[in-house]
Each structure stands twice: as C-alpha cells, then as structure tokens.
Simulated assay, not measured.
Amino acid sequence: MQNAFVCFLFGLVLGADMVIADTVVPARPIRAQSIIAETDLALRGGDLANGFQSIASVAGQEARVVLYPGRPILIGDIGPPAIVTRNQIVQMRYENSGLHIVAEGRSLDRGAVGDRLRVMNLSSRATLVGRVMQDGSIKVSK
C-alpha cells in the first residue's frame, strides 16, 4: 500500500514538471494558395515535433495544401507567399564573369522568394531553371 502511495506522489511530481505545449490548428478550412490570417488559427493542446507552437509563426504564411479545422499544421503545409505565378511574364537575369543578360520569360511554375522554378525564354522557347529574387525576377543558373 505504501509503495502505491509513493508511486502516486512520484507521478504527481513528474506531472507537475511536464508542460504540454500547444499546437497551431486551423479554426476553419483554409484553401491551398491562401494567405493565412491570425483569425484563421487556433491553439490545441498537445505537442507535435514537426508542427507549430505559436500563431505568430503561421500567420502571414501561404497554405501549400488544404488545411482542415482541428488538424495540426505541419512545417511542410505552409511557406512564404508566392510572388511569381504560373504563366506570369518575368525578367530572366543571367550573370557570369561580368556578363549580364536580361530577357523576358514566362514562368512555368509558381514560387516564393528563393524557390527554384522553370521559366521559358520567350525568344528562343528554351526552358531554363532559376531562383526567384526579391524583386520578382528570376536569376537563371547554368
């Protein structure tokens, strides 16, 4: 009987030290490619290794997939808002050893700053790969 009481007290002490973190979940359905607002989010008890614990870290991001109410938002489900859309006319920039080439292209993908995407040169119809820059241009690599 005494061992059971000691185990019970030990469990209370351990339980007092354990803190359960909150996980960010959608408060309503959020469509893919939508910008997430603070009012779209809620906190639910429970800690998830690849989830978010604060609403501030999710608000302002873009949903990459459909987010359903009550389900935890995972790291891969959201990202920075896209600034280049598919079929958008963009400036392609190539720089190498002092050579600078600028041409118009059509974006074949959608992307945020830093994303790699395909772009088609409007003059030659060649498909190239580049990285989205802050100003919305595409820095083409070799």
Rank of each mutant, 00 (worst) to 15 (best):
Q2T: 10
N3E: 15
A4I: 14
C7Y: 06
G11R: 03
V13Q: 02
L14Y: 00
A16F: 09
A16V: 08
D17F: 03
V19Q: 07
D22F: 02
D22L: 00
T23S: 07
T23P: 00
P26Y: 03
R28K: 12
P29Q: 06
R31Y: 09
A32V: 08
A32G: 09
Q33W: 06
S34W: 04
I35W: 01
I36D: 12
A37C: 08
E38G: 11
E38W: 04
D40N: 11
L41C: 09
L41V: 06
D47S: 15
N50L: 14
N50V: 14
A56F: 10
V58C: 07
A59M: 06
A59I: 03
Q61S: 12
Q61I: 04
A63K: 01
R64I: 15
V65I: 14
V66Y: 11
V66C: 10
L67I: 07
G70P: 03
R71F: 05
I73F: 06
G76C: 04
D77T: 02
D77N: 09
I78D: 02
I78K: 05
G79V: 01
P80G: 07
A82Q: 08
A82Y: 05
I83K: 01
I83D: 02
T85G: 06
T85Y: 03
T85Q: 12
R86V: 14
V90K: 02
V90A: 02
Q91A: 09
R93D: 08
Y94A: 14
R110W: 05
R110P: 00
G111S: 05
G114Y: 06
G114H: 06
L117M: 12
V119F: 03
M120R: 13
L122V: 10
L122I: 14
L122Q: 10
L122Y: 03
S123Q: 15
A126P: 00
T127W: 07
V129G: 04
V132T: 04
M133V: 00
M133L: 10
Q134H: 07
G136P: 01
S141E: 14
S141Q: 12
